[in-house]
Design a protein around this nucleic acid. Structure first.
Lengths: 134, 134
DNA sequence: TAGTTGGTGCGAATAATTCGCAACTCGCTT
DNA sequence: AAGCGAGTTGCGAATTATTCGCACCAACTA
């Protein structure tokens, strides 16, 4: 019912580290591996960065989290459930805003119809300047 | 007339390295610093990677080239002139396809009207799967 | 409860990018 | 034509981000 089943159903072992990484991603929304590690350390100080990286990768493989490249170099992770919006990335303040998927529907359809390109909404990041930074 | 004026008009010195870096970006289209360096080395074998990085940054500052994060970690650079299309990045084969800006016009307008978010088309990268990889 | 197998911690290895600094050269000034 | 000063370059070291190898440990299975 809890995370237990969720992870074990995917064929993964249930370790405190893994649970915490998943929980952190869910709570933080968009976050870098570093931020996830920081969050996890609040309750499990000894966790190793490598473990965070490995768990993020593992969790991504089983489809519980996903990552996107929202700018700079670093990847940011978010829970798979949270795919109901687009990411609006501000190039100035680096804030990540959200917008409903529907707003892009016709655009996505056009790309599909005219170019055979299937847009991956989970990786859909849009760069620009947010209203606060203009 | 040639690159000479173009660079000097921007207040930059005209060095062979700089000219070559700019020429390489223009010829290569989307390319990583590493690829630019490789290209430049064809005619100027001794060029240092640092110099390529610095020139890309310099050229970007004066608006002659721009960069985008099209996936993974690395940034890719392209000439500023070449901003007349969107980048369709295939997550599988990593190919970068193009589509005209107009296809996103209504979408961009909607983001502006409803969220006050000004989309930067030069950084507009769309993730998905291209027609060949489906 | 004991075994096997995946998972963790840790430190080293890579990769990508940036920096510091001394030598060089571009372009302006005599 | 020669000189000077600032912008540039090359090079190696320093960073940052991420991955690996390996020995130890713990989660699930029988």
């Amino acid at each position: 019912m809890a995370d237990q089943h969720e992870l074990r159903d995917k064929g993964l072992r249930l370790t405190p580290q893994r649970e915490l990484v998943l929980a952190a991603v869910r709570e933080l929304g968009h976050s870098t591996p570093e931020e996830v590690a920081e969050k996890v350390r609040l309750t499990h100080p000894g966790i190793n960065l490598s473990t965070v990286y490995r768990n993020l990768e593992t969790l991504e493989n089983v489809g519980l989290v996903q990552h996107t490249h929202l700018g700079h170099g670093g990847a940011t992770y978010h829970a798979a459930e949270e795919l109901t919006h687009l990411h609006l990335v501000c190039g100035k303040c680096e804030a990540v805003g959200d917008a409903p998927l529907e707003i892009a529907a016709t655009f996505v359809n056009a790309l599909s119809d005219e170019y055979g390109f299937k847009t991956d909404v989970s990786h859909f990041a849009i760069y620009g300047t947010c209203s606060n930074c203009q």
